[in-house]
């Protein structure tokens, strides 16, 4: 694949200034708050995953950032501009792979890519795009005949056609089989390798862990935690559970110092401790307690 027109970031946009900056974002539908004071920063070049259950407000957040959904309150900056008022020059710098992608069923893959090239002044060549997403063999196939996974790949090709600096991926692998999902992850990694900033939403933990530099957990319309995937949950993560049987009953202790608990337990028990185990919470456990532990954070 050729790499054309790679320019260093212009002065002032590099380094620490965030690509996306959100403060106190609020949005209600019919009196029901979907976003309730969400804060978010995405740095240039990183892959940030918004992780949360269905209905947590991920898609609404992305739509506000894309400038297609009005917000009730809050300050939003994407690539230095307010998406609600930004113009076509700004649009040219972002790419979107949306949930309900439809490029026109009657067109072939190549026709769709050739057509949408007319909307940007910096289109990537169609053949390059086809190769990048692995759709060379489907180039002549009508979009309506593609499999779900192939259609998502076309959506990615369309999303990056104009060489965007920032790409939004809204639940990109929902409904994909495991093979297609892994292929898709590789696409996102390739995208990152080219310097594109990626903001993706997902309700799959392993996807966030696999792709993201940082994960933001959304629950109840707020960001309840932000950290690299291996550190998400912080204190929750460090708590271990020591479990054993005593007089036929299960006993368990949740602690940040399992060694101390064990030493006391072993000292107090001269013989074998039945059923003894020490477990650290999985990412999933942490995620579930983050999502469930939020005040007012019932699933919606």
């Amino acid at each position: 694949m050729t790499s054309t027109q790679v320019a260093p970031p212009p002065a002032g946009t590099s380094g620490t200034s965030p690509v996306v900056s959100v403060r106190g974002l609020r949005k209600s539908y019919g009196g029901r708050a979907v976003l309730d004071g969400l804060d978010l920063d995405v740095r240039r070049g990183e892959c940030f995953a918004l992780l949360g259950p269905n209905g947590a407000g991920k898609t609404t957040t992305i739509e506000v950032l894309e400038g297609v959904r009005r917000r009730d309150a809050g300050e939003v900056r994407v690539l230095g501009e307010d998406p609600a008022t930004a113009g076509r020059a700004w649009r040219a710098r972002i790419g979107v792979v949306s949930q309900d992608e439809s490029a026109g069923q009657a067109l072939s893959v190549r026709e769709a890519l050739d057509h949408f090239a007319a909307y940007t002044s910096t289109p990537r060549p169609t053949d390059e795009l086809l190769a990048a997403v692995g759709l060379q063999e489907q180039a002549g196939v009508r979009v309506g005949r593609l499999s779900g996974g192939q259609r998502r790949r076309l959506a990615v090709a369309l999303g990056v056609q104009g060489r965007p600096e920032l790409v939004f991926l809204d639940e990109p692998t929902t409904g994909m089989d495991p093979v297609a999902r892994r292929q898709f992850w590789q696409l996102v990694r390739d995208l990152r390798a080219g310097g594109t900033t990626v903001l993706l939403t997902t309700h799959y933990l392993e996807e966030a862990a696999e792709l993201a530099d940082r994960v933001g957990v959304v629950a109840g319309g707020r960001l309840v935690d932000v950290a690299p995937p291996e550190e998400i949950g912080g204190q929750l993560r460090r708590r271990s559970t020591v479990r054993w049987r005593e007089d036929g009953d299960w006993r368990q202790v949740s602690t940040e110092a399992p060694a101390l608990v064990l030493r006391d337990l072993l000292a107090a028990t001269p013989h074998e401790v039945p059923g003894l185990s020490v477990t650290r919470p999985s990412l999933e456990d942490v995620y579930l307690s983050l999502v469930g532990a939020t005040p007012g954070g019932e699933q919606r």
């Binding site: 694949m1 050729t2 790499s3 054309t4 027109q5 790679v6 320019a7 260093p8 970031p9 212009p10 946009t13 076509r88 020059a89 649009r91 040219a92 710098r93 057509h115 007319a118 909307y119 940007t120 002044s121 910096t122 990537r124 990048a132 990056v160 060489r163 965007p164 600096e165 696409l187 390739d190 995208l191 390798a193 080219g194 310097g195 594109t196």
Partner: peptide, 22 residues
Amino acid sequence: MTAVLTGTRPAPPSAARIALAR
């Protein structure tokens, strides 16, 4: 996938050009 463009971009295509494609 490479070729992200962060320098100065040319202006978006004119409405007339997009209309023709449409």
